[in-house]
Simulated scan of single mutants.
Amino acid sequence: MAPDLRIFTEPQQGAAHADLLRVAQAAHTLGFTGFFRSDHVLTMGGDGLPGPSESFVSLGAIAAQVPDIRLGTLVTSATFRHPSMLAIAAAQVDDISGGRLELGLGSGWFEAEHTAYGLPFGSSFGERFDRLTEQLEIITGLWGTPVGETFDHDGPTWTLRGAPGLPKPIQRSRADVPHIPIIIGGRGPKRTPALAARFADEFNLGFPDEVEAGVAQFGRVRAACEAAGRSPDDLVYSLAHVLCVGADDAEYRRRAEAIGRDADDLRAASPLAGTVDEVVDGFGTWTTAGAQRFYLQVLDLHDVDHLDLVAREVRPRLDGAGQAPSTS
């Protein structure tokens, strides 16, 4: 079975709505299954013009104009929004899209953007992880509260009293409860797998350096699911990496230069960088390692021909590229 391919963008590096919409429309036309975006408010290099965009405003607008494909964040920072307002925004986009939203949620890591915009960052990773856990408890609690009933929460950061938990997402969980699929990722050896086992519908590895480390982390998540009494196969296991493909080496190097990356360094860092043959091999290696879904980080939003090349020359060769091992 061929892996699932989704397009993943970084708008904080410089993208107007028209740029994102064009890429989302191309993703749909070319048969990719999803269009995802990061959730940042400060560039990590360059001027970032015209400036950052609000993720859920952006996704709502795209949802109204691009049919069929899945939409979501990879990932929203738990430091950015009150969990109640995040639950409402996500449910609203789920409604606009007809039930196509997925919510990637993380603890937050980019301190500079918090300083720039006066957002609370927290004094330690442990504090941010605790905040992420509490957000997930609140968001899923609000979505899962039956209509006509209310939700209360007493936590170290937030207190809710008598929240009706409206609106509800269109999508539903396996237990037939209103629920938007949740993506959790990270490399922590204990707390991250346990959190994924408790809340996630998908576990994502972002930009791993080594296949062996990825195999180990997927294994930890599967073991955490078993310890929690949940089937490890309930989750989708995914990978995110920089996409840079050329029909030949010269085209690859031109694309690497266009995104400000050294071609040799990028080839060494990303399994999705190189010629078509090299990238097909990279997909195969990671599919064998357990990745069922790939988020293709597209950094040049004006190069739609790049996506066309993947759709024409790479994706048709991925059937049977590898088989995910099972440790359940």
Rank of each mutant, 00 (worst) to 15 (best):
T327I: 14
V276S: 08
R312N: 09
P52M: 03
M85I: 08
P271Q: 05
F203A: 04
R70E: 14
T327Y: 13
A224G: 11
P169V: 07
R315M: 13
C225H: 00
P3T: 10
A311L: 10
T145R: 11
S38T: 15
P164V: 01
G108R: 09
F151P: 04
L142V: 02
T9S: 09
G48D: 06
R131D: 00
S53R: 11
I7C: 06
D300T: 12
V310G: 15
R128M: 09
F283S: 02
V221H: 08
V236P: 08
V41C: 03
P50L: 09
P167I: 00
V298D: 03
F32S: 01
T9Y: 01
A324H: 14
D154A: 15
V236H: 02
A258Y: 01
F56V: 04
R100S: 00
S107A: 14
V242R: 05
G104H: 01
V314A: 12
P83C: 04
A112D: 15
A197I: 09
Q12N: 07
F125N: 14
P178Y: 03
F8I: 00
A228G: 09
G246H: 07
A87L: 07
E212C: 01
S328C: 14
D303W: 00
A91W: 00
E137Q: 11
L301C: 10
A112T: 13
I138A: 06
D152E: 15
G290K: 02
L71Q: 12
V23N: 08
P167H: 01
P83D: 09
G34Q: 06
E257F: 11
L142R: 01
H17L: 13
I138D: 03
E226P: 00
L59I: 08
Y252D: 12
A89V: 05
L239V: 03
A116H: 14
P193M: 07
F121K: 14
A116N: 08
I259R: 02
H153F: 15
D262E: 13
Y252L: 13
I259G: 03
P52K: 06
A213M: 03
Q92F: 00
S270M: 02
A175T: 06
P316Q: 07
T73D: 04
R220S: 05
N204L: 11
P146M: 08
D305N: 12
A227S: 08
D154V: 13
V280M: 02
G229H: 02
P271R: 06
L101N: 04
A200R: 02
R22A: 15
H241F: 05
G229F: 11
D281A: 13
I183N: 05
G246W: 07
W286R: 04
L239I: 04
A78I: 03
A16Q: 11
E212W: 10
D94A: 05
A194G: 07
H82S: 06
L132M: 12
R22H: 05
S58D: 09
A258D: 12
P120E: 10
A227E: 13
F8T: 02
A16P: 01
R161V: 13
R222D: 08
V236D: 01
W286M: 07
D233Y: 09
T79F: 04
D262M: 05
A289E: 10
R37W: 00
Q25G: 07
M85C: 04
S53T: 12
V177D: 07
R187C: 02
A175Y: 08
